[in-house]
């Protein structure tokens, strides 16, 4: 896979007359991670929702989102294949660790044996070999975060959105998980968009940093 570019064109997001994002243009190449920094409530997460396709009322949004050659602006989220990692790992409590991974694993991988092999490989990659039949609630915070990333990657996303994914981890764990995420995500040759208010995240991402002003809206 040669890798595709995620581009935002003239994105404008308005909430109740207040402009959160105004005419943002952005292009993120494969293996590139752009960081959006800003205080909470400034509209970073809303922008991610717009890119993922899950934005709804009361927000008003315009502009275009492209992945590679596809204009995905009008596409429903499931067609865009843009992965997201939230603050919370959001592992499905009704499925085992393996079940969570199988849920996301691309349907192109067929046959029970083949799918199981891919899941086991992903678990081994996350240092969680043999965890497939465990209940997610028995895992530690770091383990859960790693499962969550592997799950997102198994869906073979064309781009990855990170919505303050390390925010809720304690300081010691944060470095370890951060490294794990960037190591594995950047390996995939996909564009990554990170929103955070933690400078350390931006440094670890190593890419360009855009800052939401505390006063006005984000501009490109």
């Amino acid at each position: 896979m040669s890798g595709e570019t995620l581009s935002l064109e003239r994105v404008r997001i308005v909430l109740a007359g207040r402009t959160l994002v105004d005419g943002l243009d952005l292009a993120i190449g494969p293996r590139e991670c752009v960081t959006l920094m800003g205080p909470s409530g400034c509209g970073k997460s809303t922008l991610l929702a717009f890119v993922a396709g899950s934005i709804g009322s009361p927000f008003v949004a315009e502009g275009r989102v492209r992945v590679g050659d596809d204009d995905v602006t009008a596409w429903p989220p499931e067609r865009r294949r843009i992965g997201i990692l939230f603050q919370d790992d959001l592992l499905f409590p009704h499925l085992t660790v393996g079940g969570n991974l199988a849920f996301a694993l691309h349907e192109r991988v067929r046959g029970r044996r083949e799918r199981r092999a891919r899941i086991d490989a992903a678990l081994a990659e996350a240092d969680l070999a043999g965890f497939a039949d465990r209940d997610p609630s028995t895992l530690s915070g770091g383990q859960r975060a790693r499962v969550a990333l592997m799950r997102t990657l198994l869906a073979e996303p064309r781009a990855l959105l990170l919505d303050e994914p390390f925010n809720k981890l304690d300081a010691q764990l944060r470095d370890e998980v951060r490294r794990f995420v960037f190591d594995h995500a950047l390996e995939r040759a996909i564009p990554i968009l990170l929103v955070t208010h933690d400078e350390a995240d931006a440094r670890a991402a190593g890419g360009p940093v855009l800052r939401f002003g505390s006063g006005g809206p984000l501009r490109g």
Partner: peptide
């Protein structure tokens, strides 16, 4: 959130 996540998986 679970719904949005599952949709991001396709």
């Amino acid at each position: 959130e679970h719904l949005a996540l599952a949709r991001s998986f396709g």
